Simulated scan of single mutants.
Amino acid sequence: MRAITNIINEGLTRARRNNITFLTGAGVSSASGIPTYRGADGIWVKGTKFYKPESFGTFKHFSNNADEVWQYTFFRKKMFAEAKPNEAHFSLVSIEKELKERFHLITQNIDNLHQRAGSKNMYEIHGNLREMRCSDECSKEVYDIPREIPLKDHEEDLTYDEKALLVCPRCGEVTRPNILWFDEYYNERNFKVDTTLRIAKNTSLLMILGSSGATNLPNALVRQTLQYGGSVIDVNLEDNAFTEHFKDKKQYYSYRGSVAEFLDLFEKQIKINETI
């Protein structure tokens, strides 16, 4: 505990002009009752028992099963809507108020809980379920998912009229959720890859909160922070892909405990650190 406290204080001291960045994953939302992706009760298991995540969560699958994917999307939206932000979400809002423009929040979560808690300076690198875009990419436009479509239970299908609301207003092609699927690549327009890499380059202290490191951009953000002299604290209940990739790096540290517990410690260090 003392070593992590020292690391936090050193990071805060060096961050007078640089960023202090938080990278959040599914583990942050699990305390709100939202299952993680790959656990025994994971969201893929609940909603897609006939598919493996790597096959269901793809544009290829959507191209052949658009109605099924949209039905599952509204099931997920219902799950997210019924959840409430937890202690960790609100702690990040409080920390943002303390750190002001130095605070950056990069999230892999698409559940909208950070926004509902009040976070402002944040980047959604896996998209969100508030928006949709043309599946044929006829334009760069992003549209709100129609609120007229009610949220769905697990096996409740979309009606014909509801499906009619999920077409591109420009070309008439079916729209798709504005999220990143397994067979797609990060880009700046939808997923802020360039922006977040610049943030990481100028980050003195990066905290990984509840992310397993199973996707490419989060690993690139950690690598970028370390390469340019920043420190990284991996806050998770257990070792993960980040541990495997970066455990030998001098400025990479592990904190094995809850995200809420760590953020409480972090807030206390902000308040007693005279350099803030």
Rank of each mutant, 00 (worst) to 15 (best):
D264P: 01
T203E: 00
L105Q: 07
A81L: 04
F59Y: 14
A200D: 01
F182C: 05
L166S: 03
G210K: 02
Q269N: 14
I125L: 09
E96A: 09
I270A: 04
Y72D: 09
S32K: 13
L237D: 06
E82G: 03
K46A: 12
K49D: 09
K84D: 11
A260K: 12
E87H: 14
I106S: 09
L180F: 07
K100C: 04
A260M: 06
G39M: 10
A117P: 08
N190W: 06
R14P: 02
H114M: 08
I276M: 12
L92M: 13
T275K: 04
D248N: 13
I233F: 00
V232G: 00
T107V: 01
K247N: 15
I179D: 05
I145G: 11
T13P: 01
V222A: 07
T196V: 15
F266S: 09
G11K: 04
F242W: 01
P177T: 10
N109W: 03
R16V: 15
L265H: 03
T13L: 11
C134K: 04
A88C: 07
Y185V: 04
V259C: 08
S204D: 14
M122P: 03
L23S: 10
G127W: 06
A220V: 04
P53R: 08
H89V: 12
F74E: 02
D144E: 02
C134I: 12
F242V: 06
N187K: 00
V259I: 15
Y253S: 02
Q269L: 09
L197E: 01
E267P: 01
A117V: 05
Q108V: 03
A214K: 05
A66W: 14
G27K: 08
H61W: 12
C168F: 12
I149A: 04
T175R: 01
Y228V: 08
E131L: 05
F59S: 13
L105H: 14
E156A: 00
Y37C: 04
L99E: 05
V259T: 12
P85K: 04
I125Y: 03
R130Y: 11
E98L: 15
G213V: 02
T195H: 02
G210E: 05
F56I: 05
T107H: 00
E244H: 08
R189F: 15
F246M: 04
D153M: 13
F75H: 10
I270W: 01
A15Y: 03
K152A: 15
V174M: 15
A81H: 12
R133Q: 11
T5V: 15
G229A: 10
A164M: 12
P146G: 04
G27H: 08
E141K: 11
S139A: 01
I43Y: 10
F62S: 04
Y160V: 14
K77Y: 00
Q224G: 02
E184P: 06
Y228P: 01
L265M: 13
V232D: 00
D67Y: 07
N202Q: 08
M207H: 04
N273K: 05
V93T: 14
G118H: 09
M1E: 10
F103A: 11
R38P: 00
